[in-house]
Structure formats: C-alpha cells, structure tokens
C-alpha cells in the first residue's frame, strides 16, 4: 500500500497566492451539478462494489472525552474485521482517535493493514499557539500514528491572514515528515463555497496529503457540495503541480446511499483512480453498520437488523 506519498509537495507562498487569486464559484450552478450527480442510479454489482469500496475507505472514528482503552479495543477489532460472518468484507482503512489513545490503537492493529490516524493541532477548534500544535502533533507521531488529521486555523482564515494559516500547515507538515497529513477545513464554518475552495487550495499548497471536510464536531459537517469543490481543488492543484492529493469526507455521513453519492462525485469529477483508500476516505462511526447491512441485503435479499453486526 502506497499511502505514504511524496512529501515534497509544498507550493511557495507566492505561487499559492496566484492559485487562490480570483477564485470564483457560482452557488446555483454548483448545486445543480451536485444534484444531477446525486441522481445516478447505482444498482446491482456496481452497488456491491461501491459498498466494499466504502468499507475499505472508512476511518472508523471515536473522538470523545469518554474514550477509553476498552472502547478503542472494541473499535479496532471491528475495524480489522467489520463483518465476522463475511470474509469478503474488507478491513476499514484506519481508525481515528485522540493522541492519548494512539498507542493502544497501534497495539491492537499491529497484525493488520488498518492504519492509525490521530487528530492533533488542538482539534477541533485549533485555538492554540502553533508551538502547542506542534507538540500535540509530535506526541501523536511519537506514539506511532500513521496519519495525522489537523485543523486549519479558521481564526486566521476569517481574519484574512491566509499566510498564517498556510505557515501553520507548512510547520505541521514538517513535523509529520512522511506521516500522512490530512487537513480539516471545517467547511460548515467556512460557509461560502469560495471560502471552501480557497481553504482547500491553501491547504494543498501548504503540503497536505489530504483535505478533509469536517471535524465531525459541528452539526453541518460534510456536504456533497463541499466534496465536489474539494475535488475541483484537488484537480486544479494536480494540473498546476502534478501532485495527486486525496479527500476525506467526514461529518454526518450516516448511510450507504449518501456515501455512494460521494463516491459518484469523486468518480465522475476525478476518476476511478481516486477510488481507493489512498485517495478517498470516509470519516465515520455509524456509516459502517449501514453499509454492512446493505451488503448483506444484496446477498440475501432481506433487509437487516443492526444486531447482526458487532459493536464498534
């Protein structure tokens, strides 16, 4: 698995400015396109294929103050073998936890392909000095995290200090070195579509391997429109630099139908080479259960109950 990509992907600030200068997005046209993609009818084999993709792209997540090593144990077991009754169901891509639980997660997943991702940089608000964010990130890496999910500095973004937002990501990227860096935009706070595209491009320019929609800690976490715009940003960035970044959608994606619609966006806007865990992820807790139900339904033609599937 080549989830660790070339990290020499930082674009100079002056080039970044050029990239985000005069960004224009038309909301109505954007929504129209996204709605039209949502009308794709995914049935039969293509649906089963999609459901398996989704499982393999999931970052099974728990980010609560009440998380314990016990909870992490349950979740990692499920991550490795989501449906013990069906060997064809793949492992999820990663588990996503707070830094303090990385070592436990690492220990539980050592005999599997499941990665351990840790949030850092004073997730979810990011309202801390850069020095603290660096320590936070360094700690998670020291604990063995394969992937780091940071948040952008929305304070700086809204104050118009894009340079500061960029510099912070560059600094954290330096801490990460070859550890996979996912940068959370928190699109629900950015609100306008131009902001989302701008934040996407700045994050990519500053060295992010992935851009991610949301912390999952606010009510309007992810949206298909945001995913579409991020796909456009990834494409534009690839056109300029040749670097192929990934996208993680997280926050409010609870059922298979919704998740498939995200897959369609990525498939049609970026192409099927993005349809693997190296380039596309779902951050989710309850999504996996619905997908497992749907897979079983396709096999047995009977609608399923969640008590057939293990707790995460």
């Amino acid at each position: 698995m080549s989830s660790i990509k070339e990290s020499k992907n930082i674009l100079k600030w002056s080039d970044t400015v050029e990239l985000v200068d005069n960004l224009r997005v038309d909301e109505v046209g954007l929504k129209e396109r996204v709605a039209s993609l949502a009308s794709r009818s995914i049935k039969k084999d293509s649906k089963l294929q999609a459901l398996n993709y989704i499982i393999s792209m999931c970052d099974l997540t728990t980010l609560e103050g009440e998380d314990t090593e016990g909870k992490i144990g349950q979740m990692t077991a499920k991550a490795i073998r989501p449906d013990p009754s069906n060997d064809e169901v793949p492992s999820v891509a990663a588990v996503c936890v707070y830094p303090a639980l990385v070592s436990k997660a690492k220990e539980m997943t050592r005999n599997s392909n499941v990665k351990v991702a840790s949030v850092s940089s004073y997730f979810p608000s990011g309202q801390a000095p850069l020095e603290s964010k660096i320590l936070d990130t360094q700690f998670a890496i020291d604990q063995g995290a394969d992937e780091i999910d940071i948040v952008i500095n929305r304070k700086a973004f809204f104050e118009g200090d894009y340079r500061k937002m960029y510099d912070e990501i560059v600094a954290l990227k330096e801490v990460c070195k070859s550890v996979h860096l996912k940068t959370i935009l928190e699109v629900g706070e950015l609100r306008t579509y131009e902001n989302i595209k701008k934040a996407s491009l700045i994050s990519l320019a500053a060295g992010s391997d992935f851009i991610k929609t949301s912390t999952g800690k606010i009510s309007n976490g992810s949206s298909r429109e945001a995913c579409y715009l991020m796909a456009k940003a990834v494409w534009d960035y690839k056109t300029v630099t040749g670097f192929k970044a990934g996208i993680k959608v997280a926050g409010g994606i609870r059922d298979s139908k919704d998740a498939i619609r995200y897959l369609v966006i990525v498939n049609e806007e970026l192409g099927s080479e993005w349809l693997n865990p190296d380039y596309f992820r779902f951050g989710a807790s309850s999504l996996v259960d619905d997908v497992l139900k749907q897979i079983k339904k396709l096999k047995t033609n009977a609608y399923q109950s969640s008590y057939y599937f293990p707790r995460g």
Partner: peptide, 8 residues
C-alpha cells in the same frame, strides 16, 4: 483496482 462501472 478495477474501474467502477455503473450497472445498467
């Protein structure tokens, strides 16, 4: 990985 084709 295979291309994701939409079934009819």
């Amino acid at each position: 990985m295979n291309k994701w084709e939409y079934a009819e």
